[in-house]
Design a binder for these strands. Structure first.
Lengths: 127, 127
DNA sequence: TTTTTATTACGAAAATTGTCGTATATATTT
DNA sequence: AAATATATACGACAATTTTCGTAATAAAAA
């Protein structure tokens, strides 16, 4: 199986997000969460989680009569990978170009902007 | 045809990037560029560009015996759309969270960091 | 006007992802 | 033990994307 640990598909990312919030969890619980925002069959969720396990994205341990699944990659690793891919594929490798685009967007709220400024200051302090 | 103008696939984005650099251009020229970094048949490039035209992503005009293609969506619109999707799908809708991840990454060079700081200052001035 | 060359159109297959129905297995209840 | 319920395994189909071979068209050369 190819190593695609860090590049989840859309459906896989949805599952990872639920797990990162609280893990380990059973397929049943994951599916219950997904059902709140999405119409999808139980076996679909199960199948995707099995695929993810085969890819090494998830792992699982038996617990009573069912399995508890947990992620095998840190959230930040995946996030970093997704950002890097976006920077490379759509911003010519320039991270600053991405940030510029992000900040120029009206949808980035005042609150978000202030938060970002705070982060920059934080970084400068530690330099 | 569904409106997927702003959400190009990987192969489509590669073509868009070449066009945004200099347009309009013929399939032949686009394919020549792609061939520098990718093994792909001429008719593959052609087909994808035809698909993109059908989706409204590209347009074309006859020029002599061939066609010159040009993009039908601004680069920034597509970039913004891709960022928004990433923010929503992997950062819980928080743009600042994405920036934090980006800045915390060692791969973001000193030069990039300074550039980003400059952008922030620029934004603050205009506030 | 044939022949050659260059460009486009089209169809179809491969790869990937997402979907779920059905079967199997295991436990719980009656 | 038989019936019921719960969880997993598996196969198959649908949708999308990527791939390219081949045919058709049009232009240029011989």
């Amino acid at each position: 199986m190819k190593n695609k640990k860090n590049t989840p598909t859309t459906a896989e990312l949805e599952i990872l997000n639920v797990l990162w919030e609280d893990e380990p969890r059973s397929v049943k619980e994951i599916h219950k969460e997904l059902s709140k925002v999405k119409n999808v069959g139980y076996t679909t969720t199960l199948k995707i989680m099995q695929n993810m396990t085969a890819k090494g994205m998830l792992d699982r341990k038996p617990e009573g009569k069912c399995h508890l699944y947990f992620t095998n990659i840190p959230k930040t690793d995946t996030q970093q990978n997704l950002i890097n891919r976006l920077v490379d594929s759509a911003f010519g490798g320039s991270a600053s170009s991405l940030v510029m685009q992000l900040l120029g967007n009206k949808k980035t709220s005042e609150k978000e902007l202030n938060e970002i400024k705070r982060i920059i200051e934080e970084i400068e302090k530690n330099q």
